[in-house]
Amino acid sequence: MDVTAPAPNPVAPTVDVFGTTLEERVLLAARDCIGAKGLRDTTVDDIAVAAGCGRASIYRLFPGGRRGLLLAMVHAEVEALLEGLADTVDAAADLPTAVAEAVHAAASALAVHPVLQRSLVEDPGSVLPYISFDGAAPLYARVAAWGRDHLARFVGPDDAEAVGEWAARIVLGHLHQPSTRFDLTDPACVRHLVDAYLVPGVRAGALA
């Protein structure tokens, strides 16, 4: 599942009276349904009912049906998280603060994400292939590009990409296999990791 690919949307969005597109309603409905029923037990029909549309509308919006919809939902969730982290990072005064706050915010958000946490408990096989080993490569690439956009004011563009990927690996590694020693939802613990392991590496690279 390539989370970096644009969410499929071959038809013009239809905006309802509240200003929300049908695509957005369907994605929100998918998140709510999966969070309530689990990934395996959620059908396209369930999502269509929750979104207030017919299943045919979902197939028109998301070619591939259920899989295409899930791909688009993952893409939307990743982009929403990165957009929120951008505000935090852009307000930081220095690189260690920016990275520590981003890692803490991301880990805290994922720790209470209803769909992700339920899937990890009930159906880990549907999640783990995309957050570990080669399956996580598209996500690392996306966060590296995000790092270039939001961290390059502190270091060079290439180092900014490396720092973004480092942060993503820390968060996904903890999500995949939580540590009893480090708690990424504890801001003091995250700052220690950044100061002890990231900052020396960045400084060494700058002097090389």
Score class of each variant (00 low, 15 high):
D41N: 12
A36D: 12
T20L: 03
V15F: 04
F18H: 15
R66Q: 03
G52T: 12
D41M: 02
E24H: 00
A80K: 03
A56F: 06
V74S: 13
A56H: 13
E83F: 01
V74A: 13
L70S: 10
L22F: 11
C53S: 13
L69E: 03
L82H: 12
D46H: 01
G35W: 10
F62Q: 02
E24Y: 01
Y59M: 03
E83A: 09
P6A: 00
E79T: 12
P6W: 02
A7D: 08
G54Q: 13
R25L: 01
L71E: 15
V17T: 14
P8V: 00
A72Q: 05
E83K: 06
D41S: 03
E23T: 15
V17P: 08
I34M: 02
I34H: 04
V26S: 06
G84R: 08
N9H: 12
E24R: 04
A30P: 06
G38L: 05
A80F: 01
D32A: 12
A12T: 15
A50M: 10
C33Q: 14
H75E: 07
G54Y: 09
V11S: 02
A50S: 14
L71M: 10
D46I: 03
E23H: 12
R31T: 13
L85F: 05
I47Y: 04
G35T: 11
G65W: 00
D16P: 11
S57W: 08
A36N: 10
N9A: 04
V26P: 07
C53Y: 06
